Amino acid sequence: MKTIASKTIAFNGKFFGAAPTGVHKVAEQLVAATDALIAGQAGSGLDCTLVVRDRVEIPRYRNISCVRESRWVRRIHRIAWEQCYLPLARRRDFILNLCNLGPLLHRDSATMIHDAQVYSAPESYSLPFRLWYKSLYFFIGKRHKIIFTVSEFSKAELVRYGIANADKIVVVHNGCDHVLQVQPDARQVAALSLKPRRYVLALANTQKHKNVGILLKAFASAQLSDVELVLFGNATQADFEGLGHVVPPNVRFTGRISDAELVGLMTHAGALAFPSLTEGFGLPPLEAMALGCPVIAAPLGALPEVCGKAVLYADPFDADAWRMNILAVLNDESVRQSLISAGRRQAGGFTWRQAARSMFETVKAVSG
Results as ranks from 00 to 15, higher is better:
236 T>I: 09
236 T>V: 10
237 Q>W: 02
238 A>C: 08
239 D>M: 00
239 D>T: 03
239 D>Q: 07
240 F>I: 02
241 E>F: 11
243 L>W: 11
243 L>H: 13
244 G>W: 05
246 V>F: 14
247 V>G: 09
248 P>Y: 09
248 P>F: 10
249 P>V: 12
250 N>C: 12
252 R>A: 07
253 F>E: 09
253 F>P: 09
253 F>W: 08
254 T>E: 03
254 T>W: 01
254 T>N: 04
255 G>C: 04
255 G>M: 04
256 R>D: 15
258 S>K: 12
258 S>Q: 05
261 E>Y: 03
261 E>G: 08
262 L>K: 12
262 L>S: 06
263 V>M: 09
264 G>Q: 03
266 M>P: 08
267 T>L: 09
269 A>H: 04
269 A>S: 11
271 A>H: 00
272 L>I: 08
272 L>V: 10
274 F>Y: 14
274 F>P: 05
275 P>E: 10
275 P>W: 11
275 P>L: 12
276 S>G: 11
278 T>Y: 13
278 T>G: 12
281 F>G: 03
281 F>M: 01
282 G>F: 04
282 G>N: 07
283 L>Q: 13
285 P>V: 07
285 P>I: 10
286 L>M: 12
286 L>R: 02
287 E>K: 00
289 M>A: 04
290 A>R: 03
291 L>W: 05
293 C>S: 08
294 P>I: 07
295 V>K: 00
295 V>N: 02
295 V>F: 01
295 V>T: 08
295 V>S: 01
297 A>R: 05
297 A>H: 07
298 A>S: 14
299 P>T: 10
299 P>I: 01
303 L>E: 08
304 P>A: 11
304 P>V: 02
305 E>V: 07
305 E>M: 09
306 V>A: 08
307 C>E: 04
308 G>T: 00
308 G>M: 01
308 G>L: 00
309 K>T: 14
309 K>Q: 15
310 A>E: 00
313 Y>R: 06
314 A>N: 04
317 F>N: 15
318 D>I: 07
318 D>T: 11
318 D>Y: 03
319 A>K: 10
319 A>E: 12
319 A>W: 02
320 D>G: 14
323 R>P: 11
324 M>H: 15
325 N>L: 07
325 N>I: 07
325 N>D: 09
326 I>N: 04
326 I>V: 14
327 L>P: 12
327 L>W: 09
327 L>V: 13
328 A>F: 13
330 L>K: 02
331 N>D: 15
331 N>G: 14
332 D>Y: 05
333 E>M: 15
333 E>T: 15
337 Q>K: 12
338 S>W: 06
339 L>Y: 03
341 S>N: 14
342 A>N: 06
342 A>W: 00
343 G>T: 02
345 R>Q: 13
345 R>I: 11
346 Q>E: 05
346 Q>M: 04
347 A>F: 00
349 G>T: 00
350 F>Q: 08
350 F>L: 04
351 T>K: 06
351 T>E: 11
353 R>H: 15
354 Q>P: 06
354 Q>L: 11
355 A>Q: 09
355 A>C: 09
357 R>P: 11
357 R>M: 13
358 S>A: 15
358 S>L: 12
359 M>G: 11
359 M>W: 01
360 F>H: 13
361 E>A: 04
361 E>H: 06
362 T>N: 13
363 V>M: 02
366 V>A: 11
